[in-house]
Design a protein around this nucleic acid. Structure first.
Length: 983
DNA sequence: GCTTCCCGCCAAGAA
DNA sequence: TTCTTGGCGGGAAGC
């Protein structure tokens, strides 16, 4: 059967945006809709709420079909400062062959076509046939829906993709196939009668999966010249769902301007062509709405609750939250894009509660939050506040959360956000008094989450990681971490580790076995040393260290996937403008940072960036997309910038990464902060904010062991925010805005950002001098992951090669920009040159440019060398990186030992330099001591394996005074925890 | 027990 | 009046 639907082949329109009469062009369409469709002309001018006028700032390049070219220009560095690269998920690029192929061509027709020569004529594959024979489609009635299981339909293709990606679903699909053998054509209602439909797992009927199916039908970048019309009836029929569900999807997609309502029951598919533009606009609007501010308030309240053991406080806080939420907040309606006419049916009647509006607001929260982790709870509160609902009750909150789940699921399908495990970083207040955390259920939830979800990725280590989380959680009561049963568990885990380490492929087997016996005591002794070191360091550098703003994670976070917008495989070594803008920022490594060589590996010790995660790069896996596996480190990490130690609570969360590659801090926060300090903000609020940030600089757990430090901490207690991610957190992917248009669109934002950054840094300094921790000092680098709050436990985070490369570029640019910076700004820059190429530990084989290669050697390194960002990220997480001015004591080999993290080559010892010549290097995650409470000062190093390497960034990093030592240094190593993707 | 979110009722509004 | 749209919350699956 070959159904030729003009909807899929309207190239005859010549690319003109014109009114298309279905009756003329599409017999099928005629029979289906018989109505005119208007391809959206891009003329109208949006009026952004709170804005002074039309928001055309971000619309310059994007719109209609110029994106592709713009993208190329941006990637080549010819245009703009921000290159929103379209990276792709390996899955997408590999599986969606048709889609990817289409993308390569720039524009493609909607994949609605069902051209299935081999299609079987089973009863189950009848959607199109039925359309042809049934005449005009009407609203599907219950029982009329047909399950489209034809293997050659787009939906089936999607199923294949999903099946390939998920063994669980694959198995389920197999079962379904078996079931359908005898009952093909059964519609959901019929199956329901038979019980089959209801037997289908709830997950398989999820809105996210449905959205996946829906998205698989259409290209990311449709040719505007073609008819990209969407008939809801068709979709509902072919996806075998009720239209109600389709509305949910469409509303969210509409909020992102991926679709636009063209007529009743009809939408026009825009794909991701406008996504970047939309996100840029939303970001701007979000900043205007001061969502970041509101989130801070709410988070602060939540943190206050944590410290307040009086449950009655809750009600009062609710009121305050509402007030704060209403503060300075303007009523926000649907944000339109230039040229996008909004035709929602009930836009005027329900817009305030519309799912699309909620979706936009939700996305805004990600865009303006730093880190881009948004708690559903917080989001719900904000949304409720906007609704001016004073008498909010739990029901309303629950309803809001339900809707947010719906939205989040769709956004996840779009790969704009993703759920992540977030370690509960209870920054604030280490229970010095030994009191138990108020939120014990969260602890349970976290651990449960860890035990279950991490299992899928790191199953062998699931329990271990959970235990590590427990021990690494500063927020958790220490007494708990010392509980004998946990210690016993830790030992058990260590035994397991020994077994793993004793594996034949472990190059350090002997060393580890030797040290295993004394490992625990030694580590504890080391921890004590760390306490002292960090305390000293804090004294010397103290508040000068850049601190992430609003680092606390909320209970449920979503994260934007770097590949969400892009379908292109990461490849280009071009520097993104966005990253260039971050040159002045402190080097903040994230899993999304480039795996480039370390030509100038600027390494900085960012105390606040310490996280319990040990990122392990898994380069070039899955279609060339490197992944980072985050393993929780159990070691006590000095984390002055972040709110104290994360509790070991790894709660399920979602991250929404900023795909703009822009630092949330740098933009959302930076831009919002000035307003914060404006006169319209009460001193109390400002103080709270500062105190909030102060928590970012909260001492590590190790520090807390110091009596003096405890006293200091105690004095500050109550003002320190909890860096505790909520159980419902979403994280926006840094790259989600990484689209060409977005780059241009955000250019303006970026330009204005630097001014704020400088301001903020200065302020931070003054705050530090005043005894307050700077609100925000760490401008995040593109694609960076806010480690202190965003701690995906056990997730494989795809790393865009592009972003990685971009990071390198950003660093380079950053160094140059730093030269021009005022001295006041420099201290917070934390960028330092290093003998990158010679010393960079790498997990990637260096690319040797050929004569024909247009790439320079440096570029080649950028492409294939390990990213300093990764290194920084890791080291920062481990607290091993020191800033140029910082005390170098932390960066001693001992510190490395204590952190238990090291970059090593499979064949060790070998100078890193050699590895750079083409030999692959592997990044290993070394296990951390489970015991987090340092009790001794003895620092036995003999138990550690040392890998002599030539001076590396690592070595340079650990060199006191920031001086590069031209000597080979020994990198202490501990147990090997070979983190592979399979692990 | 809590989180997550599917499901479908039913109301508002458009046709 | 019919149909579209989608707000809303019960309640169950899943953890």
């Amino acid at each position: 059967m070959n159904v030729s639907c003009p909807r899929l082949d309207l190239s005859a329109t010549g690319g003109e945006k014109q009114q298309i009469n279905c009756e003329e062009k599409c017999p099928l369409e005629r029979s289906i809709c018989g109505q005119k469709m208007m391809l959206t002309p891009y003329f109208s001018v949006p009026h952004l709420p709170g804005g002074d006028g039309p928001c055309l700032v971000h619309s310059a390049v994007l719109s209609s079909g110029c994106e592709q070219r713009s993208s190329q220009l941006l990637h080549s560095g010819a245009v703009g400062k921000i290159a929103w690269k379209m990276s792709s998920m390996a899955l997408e690029s590999q599986s969606l062959t048709q889609k990817a192929h289409s993308k390569d061509e720039g524009f493609v027709a909607p994949k609605v076509t069902i051209n299935t020569p081999n299609k079987s004529f089973g009863q189950c594959a009848v959607s199109v046939d039925n359309q042809l024979t049934m005449g005009p489609l009407t609203t599907p009635k219950k029982g009329m829906e047909v399950r489209s299981v034809d293997p050659w339909t787009p939906t089936s293709n999607l199923k294949m993709l999903i099946s390939a990606a998920s063994p669980e679903i694959r198995n389920r699909e197999k079962e379904l196939c078996v079931d359908n053998d005898g009952r093909e054509g059964l519609d959901p209602s019929q199956e329901s009668e038979n019980g089959d439909w209801k037997m289908i797992s709830r997950k398989e009927k999820s809105l996210g999966l449905l959205c996946h199916k829906f998205l698989a039908r259409y290209p990311d970048h449709p040719n505007p010249a073609l008819n990209n019309d969407i008939c809801l009836d068709d979709v509902a029929t072919e996806l075998s769902v009720e239209r109600r569900r389709i509305y949910d999807i469409m509303n969210v997609l509409e909020s992102l301007h991926m679709v636009s309502r063209s007529a009743k029951n009809r939408y026009t598919w825009h794909g991701r062509t406008k996504l970047a533009q939309t996100l840029a606009v939303l970001k701007q609007v979000g900043e205007e709405q001061r969502y970041g501010q509101q989130m801070l308030h709410i988070r602060q309240r939540l943190r206050d609750k944590e410290f307040d053991f009086d449950g009655e406080e809750k009600e009062n806080e609710e009121v305050v939250e509402l007030e704060s939420g209403e503060q300075g907040q303007k009523e926000l309606f649907f944000v339109e894009l230039p040229g996008v006419e909004f035709k929602a049916a009930s836009v005027n009647s329900r817009k305030d509660k519309s799912l699309r509006v909620m979706s936009q607001k939700f996305v805004m929260l990600f865009l303006v939050s730093n880190p881009r982790v948004v708690s559903l709870d917080v989001a719900a509160k904000i949304l409720i506040g906007e609704d001016q609902c004073v008498d909010q009750d739990k029901n309303k909150f629950k309803t809001k959360v339900r809707r947010l789940y719906d939205i989040a699921n769709v956004l996840r399908s779009l790969k704009l956000i993703e759920k992540v495990h977030v370690t509960e970083e209870r920054g604030g207040s280490p229970p010095l008094n030994g009191s138990a955390p108020k939120n014990s259920h969260k602890l349970k939830s976290s651990t449960s989450e860890c035990a279950t979800k991490k299992k899928s990725v790191l199953e062998p280590r699931a329990l271990e990681n959970c235990a590590k989380n427990l021990f690494s959680s500063p927020g958790a009561k220490r007494g708990f971490t010392r509980h004998p049963s946990l210690i016993k568990l830790a030992k058990s885990i260590q035994d397991d580790r020994r077994k793993i380490n004793s594996a034949p492929n472990s190059p350090f087997k002997g060393a580890f076995s030797d040290s295993s016996n004394t490992e625990l005591p030694n580590k504890m002794a080391q921890l004590a040393a760390i306490c002292q070191i960090e305390l000293n360091q804090e004294s010397s550098t103290g508040a000068d260290d850049p601190k992430p703003f609003a680092a606390e994670a909320d209970p449920a976070a979503v994260r934007l996937d770097p590949s969400s917008v892009s379908m292109e495989p990461p490849q280009a070594p071009f520097q993104t403008p966005t990253q260039e803008t971050t040159v002045n920022t402190t080097v903040h490594l994230t899993p999304h940072t480039p795996l480039t060589a370390l030509p100038t590996g600027s390494l900085a010790y960012i105390q606040a960036q310490c996280s319990p995660l040990i990122p392990v790069l898994l380069p070039q896996q899955r279609g060339g997309m490197p992944y980072a596996v985050y393993l929780h480190s159990s070691s006590p990490r000095p984390n002055p910038l972040v709110r104290p130690q994360p509790t070991s609570l790894a709660v399920r969360s979602m991250t929404f990464e900023d795909k703009t590659g822009q630092s949330p801090t740098g933009q959302g926060t930076a831009k919002s902060l000035p307003a914060f300090r404006a006169s319209d903000v009460s001193p109390l609020v400002l103080k709270r904010l500062r105190s909030d940030s102060a928590s970012d600089g909260s001492p590590s757990k190790a520090k807390r062991t110091d009596p003096n430090f405890k006293a200091r901490l105690k004095a500050r207690r109550g003002t320190q925010p909890l860096n505790r991610p909520s159980s419902r957190a979403l994280h926006l992917d840094p790259e989600f805005v990484n689209t060409p248009g977005g780059a241009v669109a955000n250019q303006t934002l970026e330009q204005s950002l630097e001014t704020f950054l400088d301001k903020e840094d200065r302020t931070a300094y003054s705050d530090s001098e005043a005894g307050l921790t700077p609100v925000r000092v760490v401008p995040l680098t593109p694609g960076q992951l806010h480690t202190e709050t965003l701690i995906p436990a056990g997730y494989l985070i795809p790393i865009s090669q592009q972003s990685l490369i971009s990071y390198r570029e950003a660093q380079d640019a950053g160094r140059e920009s730093n030269k021009a910076l005022t001295p006041a700004y420099l201290p917070n820059t934390h960028c330092r040159q290093a003998l990158a190429q010679e010393t960079t530990p790498t997990s990637l084989r260096l690319h040797k440019p050929t004569a024909a290669s247009p790439l320079t050697t440096q570029q080649a390194h950028r492409l294939h060398s390990p990213s300093p960002a990764i290194l920084n990220f890791t080291l920062q997480n481990l607290g091993l990186i020191s800033d140029p001015e910082g005390v170098s004591s932390m960066a001693s080999p001992l510190a490395l030992q204590q952190r238990g993290m090291v970059f090593i080559k499979p064949v060790s010892p070998v100078p890193v330099q050699q590895s750079l010549s083409g030999q692959p290097m592997t990044l290993f995650s070394l296990q951390q001591p489970l015991m987090t409470t340092p009790k001794g000062t003895a620092l036995p190093q003999h138990s550690f394996f040392h890998t002599p390497v030539h001076l590396s960034p690592l070595a340079a990093m650990v060199t006191p005074g920031g001086q590069l030592a031209p000597n080979t240094v020994y990198i202490p190593q501990r147990k090997l925890d070979v983190a592979t993707e399979e692990s």
